[in-house]
């Protein structure tokens, strides 16, 4: 009987963790949600060839699939626009970087449209160019993995859109 209790307690532990996780996330507001590459689990779901856990120092990822599942099923945390933006960035990363360096191009237009910020395309391009000048000048960029570069890009997009177009920033 004692053994059964211990077994039941062990089985219940992950559920307790999930409940706690959900509660914490529910307190978050839009715009301050998790990074989709690491916390929504879409990186691993969409691009299984990339070793996300190894590529990123990601505590939440290390918690296991419950955290990923709960983040995915939480629309206000990992909403559709966030996932689409993350997917767009990692799928088109080299050309997006080229467009940012050039200051224009169809990939910046695509990014802006994906975020629903088509009207602010030029301002986003300009903001990203400024932000990326510092990113590329940093020595770490040359040795960064694709996952790390995508994360850097995502964070830059988030910061720039917050300054340029508030309506876009809320969604990210």
């Amino acid at each position: 009987m004692k053994k059964l209790f211990i077994l039941a307690a062990l089985l219940a532990l992950p559920m307790l963790a999930t409940a706690e996780e959900n509660e914490t996330q529910a307190k978050k507001v839009q715009g301050s949600g998790p990074n989709p590459f690491t916390e929504c689990g879409i990186g691993a779901a969409l691009f299984p060839e990339i070793h996300w856990a190894a590529a990123l120092s990601n505590v939440i990822w290390d918690l296991g699939s419950t955290a990923v599942t709960s983040a995915l099923s939480s629309p206000e945390m990992c909403n559709e626009k966030k996932k689409k933006t993350a997917k767009f960035i990692i799928e088109t990363l080299p050309q997006l970087e080229q467009d940012i360096a050039a200051g224009n191009g169809q990939y910046i237009a695509g990014l802006a449209e994906t975020m629903g910020c088509a009207g602010s395309q030029d301002a986003i391009a300009s903001g990203l160019r400024t932000s990326y000048t510092g990113v590329v000048a940093n020595g770490d960029y040359a040795t960064a993995t694709k996952a790390e570069r995508a994360t850097t890009m995502y964070n830059a997009v988030k910061t720039v859109t917050a300054n340029v177009d508030g309506s876009c920033a809320v969604a990210l």
Partner: peptide
């Protein structure tokens, strides 16, 4: 791959140092 990414960073860096208006494709 690392070597290619290093070279990409060199080229991107060179492009970002110039005004965008001077970068005609």
């Amino acid at each position: 791959l690392n070597n290619l990414n290093r070279q990409r960073a060199v080229i991107l860096g060179a492009m970002l140092k110039r005004p965008a208006a001077q970068l005609e494709r």
